[in-house]
Design a protein around this nucleic acid. Structure first.
Lengths: 171, 171
DNA sequence: AATGAAATCGACCAGCA
DNA sequence: TGCTGGTCGATTTCATT
């Protein structure tokens, strides 16, 4: 698995406000953010640089509308595997590597993996599921079609509860 | 549901290459992208501006490591609802509005909604599930705990098959 | 749709609390 | 370490093709 920053990254109130702003929209000028916080542009820039270096900001990316690329079919596929030593991580990565697979979760319970996929056509969906089944160790799959999605991008700061916010601020 | 750009957005090869680059990393200089494509910096900027105006680029955002905020617990919750007129869309939005909910899918099949949540503590997870159950029209829920995730951010261009790429380029 | 020049904004640095 | 103000380089904008 990928390296992650420690759970107890010491962020203060100002960091959190900056993160909230730029996680929603990085296309704001430094000056706007600085004015809102009563800081100079340099100070905001300094903090953003640190947040990047500490891995708290993993990167800055453009969010693309999948529909613009004709990616209109979303499915959720439950995957069961035969349990062998160390296979699970490998299988997760192999599912993830298939074109059209967007997210893979390895879960506790009778279903082992849950995969979210996004494709243009039924043929692509068929191919994708066949590729999952072809992976060594995969037992059976069960897919459901998604009719509608609800989410405002990936928004970790927006989804914090108040107690969660407090937990970050005073360790 | 939110307005989306048409499936047949007329993109050319150059647009697709720009999207691929900036979806992965917007922190590249215009000059780098321009050089790779044999264009001027202004031309690349002109295209990016258009892609934003046409809604193909939905926005530019910072990706934050959830672990840095202590968000270490991920769950997938299946939600069944009693079927009444027009309730489904409303319920989806109400689930989505709960703190800690990251994504909600409305699906065909016996399970109606699939919700992905990310919280810091078991208490927060408990609260979250209670809030789902409290929604009018929700019948029953079933949750599984996620042990590991596989995904490289949201990467719609990277997940295109070759035939998918071709389908976009020649309509 | 793409270009080059001009205005604006972000990145970096030295210095300071 | 966190911040300021200034400088330089990059990006954005605009007139022009």
């Amino acid at each position: 698995m990928r390296q992650r920053s420690p759970a107890s990254a010491d962020l203060d109130d100002v960091d959190l406000k900056i993160l909230q702003q730029i996680e929603d929209d990085f296309d704001v000028s430094l000056e706007t953010v600085a004015d809102q916080l009563g800081l100079s542009k340099s100070a905001v820039h300094y903090r953003i640089t640190n947040l990047k270096e500490n891995g708290i900001i993993e990167g800055v990316t453009a969010d693309i509308d999948p529909f613009a690329l004709g990616l209109e079919m979303v499915s959720i596929t439950d995957v069961s595997v035969t349990h062998r030593e160390g296979y699970s991580e490998n299988i997760g990565e192999r599912i993830m590597a298939i074109d059209g697979i967007e997210q893979v979760y390895y879960t506790m319970g009778d279903v082992d993996f849950v995969a979210v996929s996004r494709v243009q056509t039924r043929d692509q969906l068929n191919d994708l599921i066949e590729e999952i089944v072809a992976i060594d160790g995969v037992d059976e799959t069960s897919s459901k079609f998604v009719l509608e999605e609800f989410h405002d991008a990936r928004n970790v700061t927006a989804n914090l509860t108040q107690s969660g916010r407090d937990a970050i601020l005073d360790p």
